[in-house]
Design a protein around this nucleic acid. Structure first.
Lengths: 234, 234
DNA sequence: CTAGTTTGCGTCAATTTGACGCTTAGCGTA
DNA sequence: TACGCTAAGCGTCAAATTGACGCAAACTAG
């Protein structure tokens, strides 16, 4: 009788050591807006069969840390990033997703308001930089599938949550917010209907100042809540 | 320098064996409707610190199988169940969720149309039976959190997918469908508006026969598609 | 002061949603 | 057989929401 028929969950006793088990990794699809383009951060792998290919920053989960902590640790290591929005996406467990070993990857969606904050100084990777989402290079492992999940989740959550606050600076004009939506959703929005919808959600607060530009000055706004929450969910 | 800073994903080389890694398990929250009550299937653990407690059927993932396969294998083992609807929920990675070891659990939502199909003859568990969702016993590990996720997902997906087809027999009356919704959502539905909404989605096909009962006979319906898909998602 | 551009508010019809009334069909019983 | 009961099934109406679009206000550049 195999070990797992004797116990529901694993315990640290000696019998476990004899059975090979899949490992657990986290991989984060990190998005940012840069110049009216949605971008995501990729790192270039240095080791393994996928060396030279691009992938999302990630790595194996250590004993004693949560999945979120693992994802944050890997982002800090890979790009010196801290305090960003992270949300678990989906877990990818196909044993052939990594030809080298059976690794279950917990995919994460990450958002940051400033692409410039990412500093690729990790010795773990050959390089790290932002790519336009519409023009990603070939990705290692099953990361192109993870990318699809992440993009779908981001688009979906834009519609019914205040998740956009994590892609914008603390203060912004309505036009900037609308541009963000149009960029991510890849479709034009009616300016007036968009304003009505957003205002009806009551997420924003108007700030005193004005944004001066080449034309009529725009009112400044900020999100009431910086924490993500659903609007009018049943 | 630790192993994981040298490689992105794990490989099977010798250095890995030196580092303890979290294990991966799957746990499935299986729902069924029985007598106007939403129920879920629990098993009673026999081993480990949680022995005697109730939990969702699950176990460690083996090298070479997908997460879905692992979940199906455990359900077959625990309750002789096959060919049911399964959907990945969320992964739970808190290292303290299982006091015995660091086990990352991938939670699954399962649906079956016939609670009677579950046969608890597994030697792995002391017992297995259906519990009313509103009156679950104390659960092992973090399974009460997983239960909350599963119930929320089920309620949510009822609203915009044809997922209900997995909780109903192949043929059913409109009243039975409405009762299912009311039971799961825990609120009364307006019969006429509900019918309009469901018909507008175009999921059902009318069958020739009639359901004879104590009163006016009801038309019989079946789902056009038995595969789950979202309706009118943007 | 004028032309050009962006901001910001408002209107209107079409569609969707929520609340509810009424008829139909079959069963059981007098 | 006819009457009452109950569930099934169809339809109506007002309120709320959505999509399409017009227009004036505010500012800069020349």
């Amino acid at each position: 009788m195999a070990v797992e028929t004797l116990q529901h969950q694993a315990s640290m006793d000696a019998r476990d050591a004899e059975v090979a088990r899949p490992k657990v990794a986290v991989d984060t699809v990190l998005f940012a807006i840069e110049g009216e383009r949605l971008k995501c951060y990729l790192v270039q792998l240095t080791a393994g069969a996928a060396a030279g290919k691009w992938a999302f920053p990630g790595g194996l989960v250590r004993v004693g840390e949560t999945l979120d902590e693992a994802a944050r640790r890997e982002l800090e290591d890979a790009a010196s990033l801290r305090d960003l929005y992270l949300e678990q996406l989906f877990s990818f467990g196909d044993p052939s997703r990594d030809p080298g070993a059976h690794v279950v990857s917990v995919g994460y969606l990450g958002l940051i308001d400033d692409a410039g904050a990412a500093i690729s100084r990790s010795r773990k990777y050959a390089a790290g930089r932002w790519f336009e989402v519409a023009r990603l290079p070939a990705l290692a492992y099953d990361h192109s599938i993870i990318a699809e999940y992440a993009l779908r989740r981001l688009k979906s959550k834009l519609e019914y949550t205040n998740i956009a606050c994590n892609l914008l600076p603390p203060t912004f004009s309505f036009a900037e917010l609308e541009e963000l939506y149009a960029t991510v959703l890849e479709r034009p929005l009616d300016r007036r209907n968009f304003r009505r919808r957003i205002m009806a959600m009551g997420l924003l607060k108007r700030l005193p100042g004005k944004r001066r530009g080449a034309h009529r000055p725009a009112a400044l706004y900020a999100f009431r809540q910086r924490s993500v929450q659903a609007i009018e969910m049943l």
